[in-house]
Design a protein around this nucleic acid. Structure first.
Lengths: 207, 207
DNA sequence: GTTGCCATCGAACGATCGTTCGATCCCGCA
DNA sequence: TGCGGGATCGAACGATCGTTCGATGGCAAC
């Protein structure tokens, strides 16, 4: 059972690393900082991970994989494009809000990866962006020309959603459902217009 | 004339530093990297600046001050709230697109400042955000309740605008006016709804 | 022509970085 | 009871960090 304990310790180390990387930034965090935060000697950190690079990579891929898996589950069997768009947004924000440190590391430390690690994560981002772009294309097919350029719209939505690590507190007054509802309303209302957007958001209010 | 030359050299150094910080990140850039990029010996860098911290601070304040000054100029004498909102967005994106490196450093390296430097820049951000929030409040007063929570809307707009350093190429196919127009349409359409938004955007098209 | 000042810059400072080594420990199994 | 292998961890490695020092150069003022 040694390998189970080992994996669990790595998981715990990754959880600590995500918190510290999110708080201080990847390059400003030393392996000694990590060791102190994890309550183990420096050399022990290297017993569970190969390098600092790899810790960052593991935080990024594992969480991005979870976001992507959640998205595929949320879209499964849903055909209405506006409803698919709604679910894409909800999944992204729900996961972000419940894994703020990890998602801040994914969003903010994108440029800290190098080599194969960077290529692999970038490839996932490309595919994830493609899913959103395809949904936007479907929206336009179903409801006529949108009110904004598709590429600008896609990156604007990612900007709205990924920027939340700069201001949003999941434990504060504004609940995740309300955050998600407002983002959906702003984006859907701006991209497809309100009659259509509201049809997919029957319970929406300005909050 | 020694002080003029000195100031000009500092300006040039700041321009180089903004490029390098934007490309490699603040903490991953060494003063030796800066010296090499600026074509001067390491010790000469310290002849024009006090510290690495101060270089980052100067890049951030000087450019943020320019954004704020441009905004006040753009809003001067304009009373219609939707028109004010349009101009706020245009000013922000115009400056961002024409100073991508500096604005990436301002947006992305916000957490790299410390102490008084951090407090001063954060105070400017607070005031700048306040201007936007006040405009949004005026919009609601003039056109009735908006379609989204004001705070979420404000940070969503900043997210849309500040995220562009991750994808936008000012020299590419998509011109700045078109970028700005699309962002205005998405945000105004989502926040106040289209009849009102379009009234302030007579020349808008989806691009 | 001499004096004084500022720009220049090679060399070095102590600190800290990511990483590794090798000794010691603990514990399940013969 | 003794053996073997992974877990633990203090200490050290060479490299690089931000910063400083002190020597040198050129030029303006007298």
């Amino acid at each position: 059972m040694a390998s189970i304990t080992r994996d669990q310790k790595l998981d715990a180390l990754l959880a600590v690393a995500a918190q510290v990387f999110a708080a201080r930034g990847y390059h400003d965090t030393s392996m000694r900082d990590l060791a102190r935060a994890a309550g183990m000697p420096l050399a022990s950190v290297y017993h569970y991970t190969k390098s600092k690079d790899q810790l960052l990579y593991l935080i990024q891929t594992r969480n991005f994989d979870a976001v992507i898996a959640g998205m595929h589950g949320a879209l499964e069997g849903v055909s209405d494009p506006v409803e698919r768009l709604s679910r894409f947004i909800d999944n992204h924000l729900d996961y972000f809000a419940s894994h703020m440190a990890e998602m801040k590391v994914l969003s903010h430390e994108a440029g800290a990866l190098t080599g194969d690690f960077l290529h692999e994560v970038n490839e996932k981002k490309r595919a994830y962006t493609r899913v959103l772009m395809d949904i936007l294309a479907d929206v336009e097919r179903a409801y006529g020309p949108a009110h904004a350029n598709r590429r600008v719209a896609a990156y604007s939505l990612f900007g709205m959603m990924n920027w939340i690590y700069n201001w949003y507190d999941p434990l504060g007054d504004l609940g995740v459902e309300l955050l998600s509802q407002n983002v959906r309303r702003i984006f859907l209302g701006g991209y497809v217009g309100f009659p259509v957007a509201d049809a997919a958001l029957p319970r929406a209010s300005a909050g």
